[in-house]
Design a protein around this nucleic acid. Structure first.
Length: 580
DNA sequence: TTAGGGTTAG
């Protein structure tokens, strides 16, 4: 065996940096530092291997005269994955500038990974140009990297263009397009990609299902999610833990906690995502007791909880009014699991006390928290003051938001409502002035409902739907029926005062988005079919009351997912027991 | 002797 072969063999068995240094010394002693296969192999090993060293790789790289593509690729690849991916881009620049070694498809894949990590959209465009000049615009792997980099840098439209320009698409490129849309929050677009994909012969796999199920979860598309579950069963993907976890999340977020529990119970293998998904699912359905029980099972199964586990658990305690349990678990985070509570956990505790009417305690929690300057905490307190009609603490919360320069139109509306409840016209007027003078914007409310394989979206007083005559006719009939069962529409003081705001628009004198969605569901589905509504804001008191009466008058189960939780309306009652 | 895809909170 030659000396160079011996060294290459030694490298294969090398597992620590000290040994690597010895091999390098051997390379020098034997005069092999300019032996290309040896130096390239050594460089590649240092740049990539966990037992290697990037600094050492740099040293070796700079000892190579006229490094060729493979050597450049090693150093760019190593830095692209390292804590300083910008270095990969700098080496790529040097490579292109040097004009000695030509970048190949691997070079582009590595440098694009670096662009993705440094959020270098401009650099990505420049690399894209070079890819075209080098004639690699049809390479499916390079283009998959390219579209991911564009998408993860916020240019989803460019990602779509790269994808569309591909002459041939394989399963990974389809999956990448779906997951990019899903991760960027374009869930309807993700689902539309699947419509196109179905017409190809590519097939699908667990990655496809996970991306699609995640988007179903976000938009509340239960029917489509059930269809995907069917495919997962037929094609044997239900054993895949990622698919199982995504199914739990989809069912829980689409309002079917029982199905989420069925998937959870059927899973042979569970990881922290599995437990977190089902605990959070119980939490948003107001089943704090269920969340606590599953959390105990998680500990018995020997799975270490993380901070997300506690977000779900504390949220469950808050929605069910389990104050003592919530406080106990909050303290347990640091005392038993060495987890530092973050602002979200403090938010849950403020909500837990606030919702339970312990507003002084909620205030104390914010003031003694590590982040008393976080507007989220004050906003949660303001929300609790609305529930419990507490003007004094509500004003304190608002004052803090203003001092932080974080008060929004939504906050003014919350305080207006509190003033309105206290018949404080001066207060309402002051908030109205503030909204107008500062030109504050509010979030427009919308609701959607899935009927068949389509999702129908409504805004307040929506007249854009093609079947709006029928919808408004059904709504008037529904209001009449609900009234016969005892529904009394709530008059809004704010509306009387003429405040043109989101809350004003969302009053019983106009038709809320969820009322329109319910009317549409009643008109378009057969008797007894449950209605599932997704709403972007919290459900208002009038709509909550209306939906309870509708569930009784029409004998329908109505599941409403609002901004923070689910409400299951059945027989004139709501699962939240009016505690929300 | 190198390259591309997945889940949970908010």
């Amino acid at each position: 065996m030659s000396k160079s072969d011996t060294i290459l063999k030694l490298l294969q068995g090398c597992n620590c940096i000290r040994r690597l240094h010895k091999i390098h010394a051997l390379v020098i002693t034997n005069g092999l530092q300019h032996h290309t296969p040896v130096s390239t192999k050594l460089l590649n090993f240092c740049a990539i291997s966990v037992s290697g060293s990037l600094a050492y790789a740099q040293l070796l790289f700079h000892c190579i005269d006229n490094p060729q593509t493979q050597a450049w690729n090693s150093i760019i690849r190593g830095f692209a994955k390292s804590p300083s991916p910008i270095q990969a881009i700098l080496y790529y620049n040097d490579m292109v500038f040097a004009l000695v070694a030509r970048p190949d498809t691997f070079t582009f894949s590595f440098v694009l990974k670096a662009c993705e990590r440094v959020k270098g959209e401009r650099k990505c465009r420049e690399v894209h140009g070079t890819i075209i000049r080098c004639g690699y615009e049809s390479d499916v792997v390079v283009c998959t990297n390219l579209l991911r980099t564009y998408a993860l840098n916020g240019s989803i439209d460019l990602a779509q263009r790269v994808f569309d320009s591909l002459s041939e698409r394989d399963l990974v490129s389809w999956n990448s397009m779906i997951s990019c849309y899903s991760q960027a929050g374009f869930h309807h677009e993700a689902l539309k990609v699947y419509d196109r994909m179905k017409n190809e012969t590519t097939g699908l796999d667990g990655f496809t299902l996970v991306g699609l199920l995640s988007s179903c979860a976000h938009v509340g598309a239960l029917n489509f999610g059930v269809h995907l579950h069917g495919i997962a069963l037929e094609e044997g993907f239900v054993e895949n833990i990622y698919v199982g976890n995504a199914l739990i999340d989809m069912y829980a977020k689409c309002g079917s906690l029982d199905d989420a529990l069925r998937v959870f119970n059927s899973m042979q293998k569970r990881d922290v995502f599995t437990w977190n998904s089902i605990i959070a699912g119980c939490g948003v359905h107001g089943r704090g007791d269920g969340a606590v029980s599953i959390f105990r099972q998680m500990l018995m199964a020997g799975v270490q909880p993380n901070s997300i586990t506690f977000t779900g658990l504390l949220c469950g305690c808050s929605h069910q009014g389990l104050v003592e349990e919530g406080v106990e678990y909050f303290h347990m985070m640091s005392s038993k699991f060495n987890l530092k509570p973050g602002v979200k956990h403090y938010g849950c505790i403020v909500d837990l006390f606030g919702r339970a009417g312990k507003l002084e305690k909620a205030l104390e929690i914010i003031e003694t928290s590590p982040t008393p300057d976080d507007p989220i905490l004050w906003r949660i307190l303001l929300g609790s003051c609305k529930i419990h009609k507490n003007v004094k603490i509500g004003e304190t919360a608002m004052r803090n938001l203003m001092q932080l320069g974080e008060s929004t139109g939504g906050d003014c509306i919350l305080l207006s409502t509190i003033y309105a409840g206290a018949k404080d016209t001066a207060g309402v007027s002051e908030m109205r002035k503030m909204i107008k003078s500062q030109g504050m914007k509010t979030t427009p409310g919308w609701s959607w409902i899935e009927v068949g394989d389509r999702i129908h979206k409504f805004v307040v007083d929506d007249k854009s739907h093609p079947g709006y005559d029928e919808i408004y006719h059904k709504l008037r009939e529904a209001i009449h029926q609900a009234t016969l069962f005892g529904y009394v529409p709530e008059k809004s003081f704010i509306n009387v005062a003429g405040l043109i705001t989101e809350e004003c628009l969302e009053t019983s004198t106009s038709y809320h988005s969820e009322k329109l969605a319910i009317a549409f569901g009643l008109a378009k589905t057969s008797k007894g079919t449950p209605l599932r509504i997704v709403k972007n804001l919290r459900v208002c008191r009038d709509c909550h009351s209306f939906t309870k009466y509708i569930s009784r008058a029409f004998n329908r189960e109505i599941i409403v997912r609002d901004r923070v939780r689910f409400h299951h309306f059945k027989g004139g009652l709501c699962s939240c027991k009016d505690y929300w």
